[in-house]
């Protein structure tokens, strides 16, 4: 069994979210109360460094191209986490002409965290699950 020596980086993208989930993500990451870095991961500013992708928003027609760009730039293996009800299944925005979601259309989503918005604790749960899947993926790759 090999030991993973690197820590995963998180990258988040807002695809037309109402900012509710983004505020919760900022809460999980930035303030010491929920501190997602305890799990051994950090936020990064570039998708090229990212191992775990957090997506918020129902993927509007305007933001779709940016999402596809980010998905192309991610290094392998990567894990995708859908944060909120919107990317998971489009929720209340389903069947709208401006929505190109859900996220399953573009990439295999590994972890779904529904909620409107999900609690910071639920997001931490999701990230913890994503970490497990990421470790498994790296083991499979070797």
């Amino acid at each position: 069994m090999s030991i993973i020596t690197r820590s995963p980086f998180l990258f988040r993208i807002n695809t037309g979210s109402c900012n509710g989930c983004d505020v919760e993500l900022a809460t999980t990451a930035m303030i010491p109360r929920y501190d997602v870095e305890r799990l051994g991961c950090r936020y990064t500013g570039s998708p090229k460094h990212a191992d775990i992708l957090l997506v918020t928003g129902p993927i509007t027609a305007r933001s779709k191209s940016y999402l596809v760009e980010v998905l192309d730039e991610l290094p392998n293996p990567f894990v995708v986490v859908a944060v909120g009800t919107c990317p998971t299944s489009c929720g209340i925005f389903r069947d709208s002409y401006a929505i190109e979601g859900p996220l399953d259309k573009y990439v295999q989503v590994d972890v779904n965290v529904p909620g409107c918005p999900p609690r910071p604790q639920a997001i931490i749960d999701g990230v913890a699950k994503a970490l497990e899947i990421w470790k498994q993926k790296i083991r499979n790759q070797k």
């Binding site: 295999q108 590994d110 529904p114 699950k129 899947i133």
Partner: peptide, 14 residues
């Protein structure tokens, strides 16, 4: 009960 995180296998069983 706020525990909503689920994996892709559980998506439609949740």
């Amino acid at each position: 009960d706020f525990h909503t995180a689920n994996t892709k296998e559980e998506k439609f069983k949740f």
